[in-house]
Amino acid sequence: MNKKNISIVIADDHPLLLAGLFDELEKCGYHILGKATNGMEALQMILLHQPMIGLLDIDMPLLTGFEVIKTAKDKGVNTKFIILSFHKDTEYITQAKALQINGYLLKEDSFEEIEKCIEAVLEDNEYFSTSFDALSLKNASEEIKKLQLLTPSEITILKLIAQQTNTNSIAETLFVSSRTVEKHRSNIITKLELEGGTNALTRWALAHKNTILEI
């Protein structure tokens, strides 16, 4: 595909990084529809222009990159999203996979890798930075596979647990018995292969809160 036909919106709250990325993409012939310095501005540009590619930082004022992507996807935007971040932790990779984000790059990556990622996601392939170690990617994928085993009811309960809602309050919220909630908790523990008793689920849910709430 001709680069001038590849429309892109970029967002980063670091002015120098944003300017550098803009200049490099423009110099290489990409069609830059806009650049944003906060999440809300990025979301507005994406909803308005519906670019082929959204290249976003995670940590931005008003809305994070993940929140921008989730909202845009909920509104039916067909943009392919690429995260460009400093974050290497498995937690962030898992969140990206939970949101079915097309690409995840690190700010230490070369511009050549950014172009490889753009090419890959436009061909409907997932692309994660070669700087990620294989174990982190594997662990993130395994966590997502386990979460995909949960039923809609179990996901609802897991989200409430992640928000530190106790069993009785969950039962009242969902109009079911506490025994039903406990049964769901037991099933979730089994599917997630957790060890350490009933508190293990609460600890796991709090540790993975951001990923759970993205589901």
Rank of each mutant, 00 (worst) to 15 (best):
I114K: 03
F22Y: 14
L63V: 11
Q50F: 09
T37S: 14
A120G: 00
N210F: 15
I69K: 08
L135R: 00
L18A: 03
I114C: 03
I53V: 03
L192A: 04
L99F: 01
G197Q: 13
L149Y: 10
H184T: 09
T79N: 04
T173G: 14
F111N: 06
K73Q: 05
V176T: 05
A42P: 00
E182Y: 15
K146G: 08
D12C: 06
K27N: 09
G197L: 13
I114P: 09
T71N: 11
F81T: 07
I118L: 04
E112P: 08
D12Q: 02
A36L: 02
N139H: 15
I6A: 00
T202Y: 14
F132Q: 00
L48F: 12
N38V: 05
K97Y: 02
Q50G: 08
I58A: 07
M45G: 08
L135Y: 11
D23I: 14
A200H: 08
A171M: 09
M60P: 06
G39I: 10
W204M: 08
Q148H: 10
K159V: 03
T71E: 11
P51Y: 05
I161S: 07
K159P: 03
K209L: 14
K3P: 01
T90E: 07
L192F: 03
L48V: 10
L137D: 00
I157N: 07
G196W: 10
K107S: 04
P15W: 09
P15R: 12
E113C: 10
I157D: 01
N38R: 09
T37F: 12
D23Q: 12
P152G: 14
L147K: 09
S178P: 05
W204Q: 14
K209W: 08
I114T: 07
L105R: 00
I6P: 05
I8L: 11
E67Q: 04
I101F: 06
K70Y: 02
E182I: 09
K4G: 06
T211I: 08
I161W: 10
P152C: 14
Y104C: 02
L33C: 10
L63M: 15
K75S: 13
L158P: 03
L174A: 11
E115C: 13
T173H: 15
E115M: 11
G76D: 15
A19C: 10
R185Y: 06
S186N: 14
N210Y: 04
E214F: 11
L213G: 06
K70H: 10
D12I: 08
S153M: 11
I212P: 03
P51D: 12
M45Y: 12
L194C: 12
V176M: 09
Y127N: 05
K27C: 07
A200D: 05
L105D: 04
E154H: 04
S110F: 11
T90I: 15
L160S: 13
G65V: 06
K3Q: 13
E214D: 11
L33P: 01
I32N: 01
F66S: 07
H49P: 05
T211H: 06
F86M: 06
L149C: 11
L192M: 10
N187V: 15
T211E: 10
I212F: 00
K191G: 14
L201H: 05
K159M: 01
S178M: 11
C117T: 07
L55H: 00
T190Q: 08
K73F: 08
A207G: 14
A162T: 02
D57S: 02
W204C: 04
I10K: 04
M1P: 01
A120F: 00
K3Y: 07
L160R: 04
I53A: 03
E115Y: 12
F81Q: 02
I161V: 00
